[in-house]
Design a protein around this nucleic acid. Structure first.
Length: 899
RNA sequence: GCCCAGGUGGCGGAAUUGGUAUACGCGUACGGCUUAGAACCGUAUGGAGCAAUCCUUGGAGGUUCAAGUCCUCUCCUGGGCACCA
C-alpha cells in the first residue's frame, strides 16, 4: 500500500514549481529538454477543452472525464517530443452569478473569483497538465477589451447592426434571447414561457456566411451527428418564389416594398430584397411547385404586410370591405396575443380570416382566395404560402376548416368552399378523390390533372415547372434558410458592455478603439426591472459625458448641444455570453498581448485546433458562432484558415449508479473530491477512462472503481519489489513480448481516444507479470519497468512519477524535476513483440474445426500451410475422403476449406 | 412526421474494419491463506447437454468459403428538429 494522497500532493507541487507544462513565451521549462534526440519541434499540437462556466458547485465527474482524456493526449504527445499547447480559462460572465447576486447581494465578481479558485484547485488535484500561464477569464477587462474590439470590427463592416422587430423575451430573466436560446417556446436557462416583444436590438449578421457555414463542414473531422445538427439549424432549402397577381383590391395606399416579416439576410433569401409585395401581387415560397395545378388558396402570416395593411385600411377590398377589415383586424389581434405555448397547445387546429382578395394562378387561371392564418410563419420564406390541399396535410386541414365554417355557425361567411384536387398519384395507385387526411399524398408519385406535367414523376415535374415559371416570368428559383441573424444584446448586468454611446438625437456612435476596455461599471443595482441594470450606474453616466466631450466635441459644437455632454447616454445593454466564448480559442495563444487580440504568427503557429473536446449540448450555438467569428476574422486578414476546429469529439455523460442523469434532487451525484480522498486521483482518472468509449453515456460503478484501485496498488507492489533477480529465459521472452505489444497497443489507442482498450491491455500485461513473479520469484529488468511506467504515465501520472523516482533513484524537488514526464515515449520493438508461434484456425464449410500452430516465419508459405491443415487428424475426419472444392488461406489469420 | 446515434453474457464493455464473438474489468461460485476478515491468492464462469456436439451479437431474409461487421425489410431505446410551405 502506498499513500496516494500524500504522493499526489507531492508531485503536483513539484510539477507546478518547475512549470512543467508551460508551452508559450510566458515562461517555464520547455518539455522535452531532457527528452533525447528525436524531438520534433516543428510539430505543434493544440488541444482544447471547451472552457467551463465556473459554477459554485465545483467540478463534477463529467468534467474529469473529458479533461483527463485531453490530458492523456497532452502528456503522450509531449513524451513523443511534440510541442503541446493545452490552455485553460473561464467562461466567467453569465446569468447564474448575476442571479445569485440578486438573491444574496454578493457582487458577481466575488462569486466568480471564488468559484474559479475552487475549480482551479480541483483541476490541479486531478493532475491536468494545463498551461496555467495562459489562463483567461472572459470577465477580465483585458479579455473583454478584445470582445469589444471585435464588436467594433463587425460594426465597421456593417455586420453589427441595430434593428427593430419581434424578439424573444424571457419575463423571468428580464432579457431578450437569441432564437437558439429558446427551447420549445421556453427559456433555455429558466424554463419560463418566452414572450414576443417589439424591441430595437443589436445583431451580428451571421447569415452573411450561411453558405460557407454549410460547405465548411466538408473540411472538418467532426461526428456526423454534429454536422447534421448544424445543417439542420441552418436549414437551407431550395425552391421557388411564385408571384401571383392579386384581384379584388378597391384601393391601395401606394406601392410598397419588402415581403412579409423576413428581412435582413443574404440577397438570395426567399424573403430577400428581390421579392416585392404590393397590393397588386403576392409572392409565395414553395419547394413543391410541381403540385401547383392543384393550388386552391393562399395563406399569409399575421405579420405579413398585406394583412396589416388590410387591418389598418391601407388596402381596401372591393367587396365587403368593412366586414373584411373588422375580421382581419380581430384575427391579427387574437394571433398577436397567443404565446408560443398557446400555439403549441393548439396543435394542428387551424384558424384564420379571409382577406376578401384573390390571387390568380397563371397555370389554371383559377382565382385563389387569400386568407390570413397563424399556421404560416412570418419569419420563414416570404411569409405567404400557396395552399395545395390534396398534397399537404396542413393545407388540407386548413381547407377543411374553411369548408366547415358554415356548419360551425361562424359569422365569417365571405368565404367560398375550397376544392381539393388530386395532382399526384402515389405508389399505392389511389387515384380517387381526396376526402380524408389519410389520403393526402405528400410522397413521391406520378403527376396527373396537370396538363403538360402528366405522367412524369414529381422530381422531374418540379424541375420542369420551375423552368416553365421562370421562362414566363411568374417565379424565380430561390434558396431559403432557417438561420436568422444573431441577436447579441442582453438587458443584463454581468456581461461585456456594448461599446456604443448615443447622441441626443439617438444616433449610435461606437466607442473609439483607444478607449477600450469600455469597462463594466460596478455601482449598479442588480434587481431586474426590465431595463438594463447599467442604467442605475452613476459612474457610467459620468464617464459617458466625459468621453463624448473629449471625443465628439466637434459634433457637439456643430449641433449646438450642451457642451458638458448632457443628453448623451451609453448603451446600457451587455453582450450575450456566447459572444465572449466565440473567440476565446484565439486569445489563448497570445493571452497577455496588450496590443492586439493575438499576433497572427501565434495564431498560425497553433491554430486550427487539433482536437476540441466539447459537450454535446454546445453543438448548435457555440460552434456556429465560433465558426462565424473565424470566417469574419479570416476575411479581415488576421489569418488564413477558415475552420477553427479541425477535429472535434464529444464526451458522453457520466450517469449516476442508477443509470440516470446525475442531479442533486435525485441524490445520485458522485463528487470527484470524495473519490480522490478515498482512492486517489490516479484511480479516478484511470477508472473514468476505463468505463467505456469516451462518446457514450455510462453509469458510475463504485465496485469497478475499487477494481482500478487494486490494479494500481498491484502495479506499485510489482515495481517497488527491488530485491528480486531479473527474469530470464523463456519467461523473459514472454514477458517482454507482452510488454512491447502493450507499448504498441497503447501508442495506437491514445491518438484514437480508445483509452479503455489501452488500459485493458496494460492489465493483461500486469497480470502476466504477476504470474511470472509468483511462479519464478523473478521480475522485470529496470529498463523494462521504466518502459512500462512510461506508457502508464499519461493515465496515472502521479503513481508513474513516484515509481520512476523509486527505481531510477533520480530525485525530483521543487527546484528541479527529472521525472518520467520528461522522458521519451518508450521505444517499440517489432522483433520483441513478435510471437514465435501463430495459431491459425481451420474452417471446414465455414465452421471452425481445428487450430493449426505455425512458426511465425512460415506464415507466408501458403502451400505448406494448406498441406499441414489438410493433414490434421481433426480435419481429415471432416474431409472424410471428399474432394476439397475450394481452399482459402488468409495470411496468418484463417484457413477455410470447402468440401 | 423528419434527421442522427445505438441495440453483443448477470452488469460496464472488447472484436485488428468481412477472418477464432464475448478481450479487460465488475459480479457470482468453489478452493487456498488466515484466529478472523477481504480492498489477498488460485480455479471456473454466454446458453443447452454426461458427452460428441448444437445454439447464440434486438427480429426476419439475403450476399459470401466466412457476417456482430455488408445489403433489404422490421422492432425497440436514446438524442436533435418540427404547423419551416
Amino acid at each position: 500500500m502506498y499513500d496516494q494522497n500524500k504522493v499526489e500532493e507531492k508531485w503536483h507541487q513539484i510539477w507546478e514549481k518547475n512549470k512543467l507544462f508551460q508551452q508559450t513565451e510566458n515562461g517555464g521549462a520547455k518539455i522535452g529538454e531532457n527528452g533525447g534526440s528525436d524531438v520534433n519541434d516543428s510539430e505543434n499540437i493544440y488541444l482544447l477543452f471547451a472552457f467551463a462556466y465556473p459554477s459554485g458547485s465545483g467540478l463534477h465527474v463529467g468534467h474529469v472525464e473529458s479533461k483527463t482524456a485531453l490530458d492523456i493526449l497532452a502528456r503522450y504527445y509531449r513524451m513523443k517530443g511534440k510541442n503541446v499547447f493545452f490552455p485553460v480559462g473561464w467562461d466567467a460572465f453569465g446569468l447564474p452569478a448575476e442571479n445569485y447576486a440578486i438573491k444574496t447581494g454578493v457582487h458577481p465578481s466575488k462569486t466568480t473569483v471564488s468559484a474559479i479558485d475552487t475549480f482551479r484547485r480541483q483541476i490541479k488535484r486531478i493532475g491536468i497538465s494545463y498551461d496555467w500561464a495562459n489562463e483567461i477569464a472572459t470577465s477580465h477587462p483585458e479579455y473583454y477589451r478584445w470582445t469589444q474590439w471585435l464588436f467594433l470590427q463587425m460594426y465597421n463592416k456593417g455586420l453589427a447592426y441595430q434593428k427593430d422587430g419581434k424578439v424573444n423575451w424571457c419575463p423571468s430573466c428580464q432579457t431578450v434571447l437569441a432564437n437558439e436560446q429558446v427551447v420549445e417556446g421556453l427559456c433555455e436557462r429558466c424554463d419560463s414561457q418566452v414572450e414576443q416583444k417589439d424591441m430595437r436590438q443589436w445583431y451580428y449578421q451571421i447569415t452573411k456566411y450561411q453558405d460557407e457555414l454549410i460547405s465548411g463542414l466538408d473540411d472538418v473531422d467532426w461526428p456526423a451527428a454534429t454536422k447534421a445538427q448544424q445543417l439542420n439549424w441552418i436549414g437551407k432549402k431550395t425552391g421557388i418564389n411564385i408571384t401571383y397577381k392579386v384581384e379584388g383590391v378597391d384601393k391601395a395606399d401606394g406601392a410598397s416594398k419588402s415581403g412579409g416579416a423576413s428581412k435582413a439576410g443574404g440577397a438570395e433569401q426567399a424573403g430577400g430584397a428581390d421579392t416585392t409585395t404590393s397590393a397588386d401581387t403576392i409572392t409565395c415560397f414553395t419547394t413543391r411547385p410541381d403540385t401547383n395545378f392543384g393550388a386552391a388558396f393562399i395563406v399569409i402570416a399575421p405579420e405579413h404586410e398585406m394583412a396589416t395593411k388590410i387591418a389598418s385600411g391601407e388596402i381596401v377590398p372591393k367587396e365587403n370591405s368593412v366586414e373584411v377589415m373588422t375580421n382581419v383586424a380581430n384575427y391579427l389581434d387574437l394571433a398577436s396575443k397567443k404565446t408560443e405555448l398557446d400555439r403549441q397547445q393548439e396543435g394542428k387546429k387551424k384558424s384564420g380570416a379571409f382577406t376578401g382578395l384573390y390571387a390568380v394562378n397563371d397555370l389554371t387561371a383559377k382565382k385563389m382566395p387569400i386568407w390570413v392564418s397563424d399556421f404560416v410563419l412570418g419569419g420563414f420564406g416570404t411569409g405567404a404560402v400557396v395552399g395545395v390541399p390534396g398534397h399537404d396535410t396542413r393545407d388540407f386541414e386548413f381547407a377543411e376548416y374553411v369548408n366547415n365554417l358554415e356548419k360551425t355557425g361562424s359569422k365569417d361567411t365571405l368565404n367560398k368552399k375550397i376544392e381539393v384536387i388530386r395532382v399526384v398519384i402515389g405508389q399505392d395507385g389511389d387515384d380517387s378523390k381526396i376526402t380524408t387526411v389519410a389520403q393526402v399524398q405528400e410522397e413521391q408519385g406520378t403527376m396527373t390533372n396537370s396538363d403538360f406535367l402528366n405522367g412524369i414523376n414529381i422530381y422531374d415535374a418540379t424541375e420542369k415547372i420551375m423552368d416553365h415559371m421562370e421562362e414566363k416570368g411568374w417565379g424565380k428559383r430561390v434558396t431559403s434558410y432557417r438561420l436568422r441573424d444573431w441577436l447579441i444584446s442582453r438587458q443584463r448586468y454581468w456581461g461585456t458592455p456594448i461599446p456604443v454611446v448615443y447622441d441626443p438625437d439617438g444616433n449610435p456612435h461606437a466607442i473609439e478603439e483607444s478607449h477600450l476596455p469600455w469597462e463594466l461599471p460596478t455601482d449598479v443595482d442588480f434587481k431586474p426591472t426590465g431595463e438594463s441594470p447599467l442604467k442605475s450606474s452613476q459612474e457610467f453616466a459620468k464617464r459617458t459625458k466625459k468621453y463624448v466631450v473629449e471625443v465628439h466635441s466637434d459634433l457637439i459644437k456643430e449641433k449646438g448641444w450642451d457642451m458638458s455632454g448632457e443628453g448623451w447616454r451609453p448603451e446600457f445593454d451587455t453582450m450575450d455570453t456566447f459572444v465572449d466564448s466565440s473567440w476565446y480559442f484565439l486569445r489563448y495563444v497570445d493571452s497577455r498581448n496588450t496590443n492586439e487580440f493575438a499576433r497572427t504568427e501565434q495564431i498560425e503557429k497553433w491554430l486550427p485546433v487539433d482536437l476540441y473536446m466539447i459537450g454535446p449540448e454546445h453543438i448548435v450555438l457555440h460552434l456556429l458562432y465560433s465558426r462565424f467569428f473565424t470566417k469574419f476574422l479570416r476575411d479581415e486578414g488576421y489569418f488564413k484558415f477558415s475552420e477553427p476546429f479541425k477535429k472535434m469529439r464529444h464526451q458522453g455523460m457520466i450517469l449516476g449508479p442508477d443509470n440516470k442523469k446525475m442531479s442533486k434532487s435525485k441524490g445520485n451525484v458522485i463528487s470527484p473530491d470524495d473519490i480522490i480522498t478515498k482512492f486517489g486521483a490516479d484511480t479516478l482518472r484511470v477508472y473514468e477512462m476505463f468505463m467505456g468509449p469516451l462518446e457514450s453515456d455510462k453509469p458510475w460503478d463504485i465496485r469497478a472503481v475499487i477494481g482500478i484501485f487494486k490494479f494500481l496498488q498491484k502495479i506499485h507492489k510489482l515495481v517497488a519489489e527491488l530485491e528480486l533477480e531479473n527474469v530470464a529465459g523463456e519467461a523473459k521472452v514472454k514477458l517482454q513480448r507482452k510488454l512491447h505489444q502493450a507499448i504498441k497497443k497503447v501508442s495506437d489507442d491514445i491518438p484514437k481516444l480508445k483509452f479503455n482498450t489501452a488500459i485493458a491491455f496494460m492489465m493483461e500485461f500486469v497480470n502476466l507479470w504477476q504470474d511470472v513473479m509468483i511462479k519464478d520469484s523473478k521480475t522485470l529488468s529496470k529498463e523494462d519497468k521504466v518502459a512500462f511506467i512510461g506508457i502508464l504515465a499519461p493515465f496515472a501520472p502521479f503513481l508513474a512519477d513516484e515509481l520512476f523516482e523509486t527505481i531510477s533513484k533520480k530525485e525530483s524537488s521543487d527546484a528541479s524535476y527529472s521525472g518520467i514526464h520528461q522522458t521519451n515515449w518508450p521505444e517499440f520493438s517489432q522483433e520483441l513483440a513478435q510471437d514465435d508461434l501463430i495459431n491459425i484456425p481451420v474452417q471446414i464449410n465455414g465452421k471452425i474445426r481445428a487450430q493449426l500452430e505455425v512458426e511465425a516465419d512460415k506464415v507466408e508459405d501458403e502451400k505448406a500451410i494448406l498441406d499441414m491443415a489438410e493433414k490434421l487428424e481433426s480435419i481429415k475426419k471432416y474431409i472424410d475422403g471428399q474432394e476439397i472444392k475450394k481452399k482459402i488461406y488468409i495470411k496468418g489469420k484463417i484457413i477455410s476449406l470447402v468440401v
